[in-house]
Simulated scan of single mutants.
Amino acid sequence: MSIEFDNNLPIYLQIMNYLKREIVRGGLKPGDKIPSVRELAADLQINPNTVQRTFQELEREGIVETRRGLGRYVTSEGSKIMTIKKEMASELLEHFIRGMQELGFKEQDIMSIVSEAVKEDVNQESR
């Protein structure tokens, strides 16, 4: 696992976001075992307490579950994963729309730009 850390955001949040992205995109599947605190801390070269905090937060959010004596696993609850996916998409859209509005674009302009970009992307994928 490789994460390029941003000095402006707490490391535990960056690890949480990385793991959430891996889960919603399917890199970590429901029921998959997550590396231990020690393994992940060694891999990322960070303090184990930071990883522990990350896992506590993920567990509090219901994204991972601890199985006593076996470790931590991605939740098998598909609806929870879909909820996380929708929340992440909503955050991206909110950031994008705010940025476009700050550039002076109106709703119809934003819709046209997005529509054209999607068509372009589809055309490039079909080549």
Rank of each mutant, 00 (worst) to 15 (best):
Q101S: 13
I15N: 08
F5T: 11
D6L: 07
T50G: 07
S112D: 15
A117G: 10
L103V: 00
R53V: 03
Y73K: 01
V122L: 15
E22M: 09
R68H: 00
E91D: 12
S115C: 03
V24A: 03
I3F: 05
N47C: 06
G69V: 00
R38G: 06
R98E: 13
E61W: 09
Y12S: 07
K29Q: 05
L93V: 05
E57H: 10
T83R: 09
S115R: 11
K33M: 07
K20P: 06
N49V: 03
F5S: 13
V51Q: 02
V24I: 10
S76C: 07
L19Y: 02
T54R: 05
E59T: 12
A42F: 12
R25Q: 11
V122P: 08
E94T: 11
D6N: 15
N17L: 04
K85I: 01
D43C: 06
S76Y: 04
V122K: 15
F105A: 05
D43E: 10
S112W: 03
F5A: 03
N17E: 15
I63C: 07
G69K: 02
I15V: 10
L28H: 12
I23A: 03
I113W: 00
E65T: 02
V51W: 01
N7A: 10
E125Y: 08
Y18D: 15
E87K: 13
G104M: 02
P10Y: 06
R38S: 04
Y18W: 09
E57W: 10
N123G: 02
S76P: 03
E39I: 09
R68T: 04
N8T: 13
I46L: 07
K85D: 08
G71H: 03
M82W: 11
V74I: 08
